[in-house]
């Protein structure tokens, strides 16, 4: 009877008028300069130490890591990571490419890769956790559902709006990071080569598939993966928001899941079925950069599949519950 566009317009107006999106932009504008400053200080220090020669710096990193391999105090897990890391650094050194070249684009790449498990999901939850439960807390859900619009349409309009804002958050994070860090490190670096395609088997790195891509291309691939993770997080937070009546509770549930994920990532390699949990599959960008996955048997397509299944299940549950449920208060 009524099409979705006016409903999506309603939801968009509500999110903007609630000033949620401004808060998110504000958080980015405050935090990114802080990280940029920290990165600047550490770059200055290494430059002093190695007199501006990056080859010395990388060589030093390799030596440090190799030395620690001999120590008994370092757990075997870490040794494996470090072995792989050393091989990758050596590859960069052999091909005369500075992996840490300081510029705005590299900083953006590093920052976004680090934000994928907690920071970006947190920003998305600021909108997602409230989108349905907020209407229940305020009682406006009664007004919304007594209009001549089917419930699934109301929910779908909220989901579409959430996906739009999630995408906008990812794009804003990229732009703000690039603009802010570029002011310090310079806006160049799009053409810099980045190596990708490291195949990891056990503690060895298979270098046969490694190839260089220009950094702008790498950023695009990374952006796509971050966007995918964002939509997954948005879907899950959306389900929690449908199931839980209070916005605070819905944020707590999602945060607990995400933090559990970061803890598990650090210690779950022995428990292999943990790989089916969505939280340990969020670091998709690690597959690009060649960081080993936390649990044996995980790879990019596996993680994409796990995240898709979780997201689709969450959406099915959301729609089933929302269309069937009695609104008792």
């Amino acid at each position: 009877m009524i099409n979705l566009l006016p409903l999506i317009k309603n939801e968009t107006i509500k999110i903007i008028k609630k000033k949620r999106f401004y808060v998110i932009l504000l958080i980015l504008l405050v935090l990114v300069p802080i990280f940029t400053y920290a990165q600047m200080r550490s770059a200055e220090r290494t430059r002093e130490k190695f007199h501006g020669d990056w080859r010395l710096e990388v060589q030093q990193q390799i030596t440090d890591n190799e030395n620690s391999l001999g120590s008994d105090r370092v757990p075997d897990e870490w040794k494996k990571y470090r072995k792989i890391f050393v091989q990758q650094l050596q590859y960069y050194l052999d091909h005369d490419v500075n992996p840490n070249e300081p510029n705005g684009v590299t900083f953006t790449r590093e920052f976004m890769a680090n934000s994928i498990t907690l920071f970006i999901p947190l920003l998305i939850m600021a909108i997602a956790s409230d989108i349905v439960s907020g209407e229940r807390t305020s009682g406006t859900i009664k007004m919304l559902l007594t209009r001549p619009v089917k419930r699934w349409k109301v929910l779908l309009s909220k989901l579409v709006t959430l996906f739009m804002f999630s995408s906008l958050i990812v794009v804003s994070a990229f732009i703000i990071t690039y603009v802010v860090s570029g002011a310090v490190f310079g806006y160049k670096g799009f053409d810099m080569p980045v190596f990708t395609g490291f195949q990891i088997t056990g503690s060895d790195v298979d270098l046969s598939a490694v190839h260089a891509v220009p950094q702008w291309k790498y950023l695009l691939m990374q952006g796509g993966l971050i966007w995918f993770v964002s939509l997954t997080i948005a879907s899950l937070a959306f389900m929690v928001s449908v199931l839980v009546r209070s916005t605070a509770a819905s944020i707590v549930v999602m945060m607990a899941a995400l933090i559990a994920g970061t803890i598990l990532t650090n210690m779950a390699s022995a428990w292999s079925s943990a790989k089916y949990l969505f939280m340990v599959n969020l670091e998709l960008t690690d597959y690009l950069s060649g960081t080993p996955a936390p649990i044996e048997g995980m790879n990019l397509s596996f993680s994409l599949a796990v995240l898709s299944v979780w997201a689709v299940a969450a959406l099915i549950i959301s729609f089933l519950v929302f269309t069937k449920r009695d609104i008792l208060n």
Partner: peptide, 28 residues
């Protein structure tokens, strides 16, 4: 049907007019 179930709950962060526009969009 037009209804008020229990309290008249509307969006407090919108103006009265914006609230009415919101509900007007839900009906052709």
């Amino acid at each position: 049907v037009g209804s008020i179930v229990e309290n008249p709950e509307v969006y407090s962060y919108l103006t009265g007019w914006e609230n009415l526009e919101h509900f007007a969009r839900m009906q052709p």
